[in-house]
Amino acid sequence: MFEARLVQSAILKKVLDAIKDLLTEATFECSDSGIQVQAMDNAHVSLVSLNLRSDGFDKYRCDRNLSMGMSIASMTKILRCAGAEDTVTLRAVDNPENIMFIFESPNKEKLAEYEMKLINMDQEHLGIIKTKETSYSCVVKMPSQEFSRICRDLSQFGESITFACSKEGIKFSASGDFGQATVKLAQTADADKEEEAVLVTMQEPVKLTFSCRYLNCFVKAGPLCAQVQLSMSNDVPLVCEYKIGDIGHIRYYLAPKIDD
């Protein structure tokens, strides 16, 4: 028996919004410690790693480990049926063929149950990739809205954005047929609010170029967290991390572009 309950179904809606442009289907690995998803996008350029800890749920029970293949589009359709204030419960039996989504209104007067068929994910099985816990040359924390804005604005200029980080701050630049764009963010000396701060931790400067298409998918996680953390080292994938309240995080790994 697997059962996981979240008082705020809105969190799950936001998580789906954060992955639905990158993944068509994914395996949800459920265990005692929580729910984990790791999947590469179809082009194998980026990796999504979602972690929801069992202690972050309002109720959590997982008698035996389960791997449930789910269509992200179908899940999105079902989550659309949840009211903004509804509680959501995910429920499955051992060896499930289906998963139940149960939505309950705050006054408990409405109870809706949706059943979704699981997918047999028999293609290349990734297992859980040991993503390296390396120390990165630069780690930048900045407002997620600002990051979304910069990615959107600079995408108008070209297909990729160059991130150059030094101890002064981070510089984003893009260039294309009609011109070029640069946005520099200085480290904030003393931001009034923590969520508005720009913080740079630097061992050595980095300069990396990334595809706008993927960055613009990652920023869909913006509503999950006021701050985004970008971890960078030269010639290794960017890690773009959004915390999901007290329950977990979503990390996107993106391979840098290289000159031909």
Partner: peptide, 14 residues
Amino acid sequence: APKQRRIREFFVKW
């Protein structure tokens, strides 16, 4: 234009 690398080069041993 710079070439897009694949994440599997970094993480997955096939």
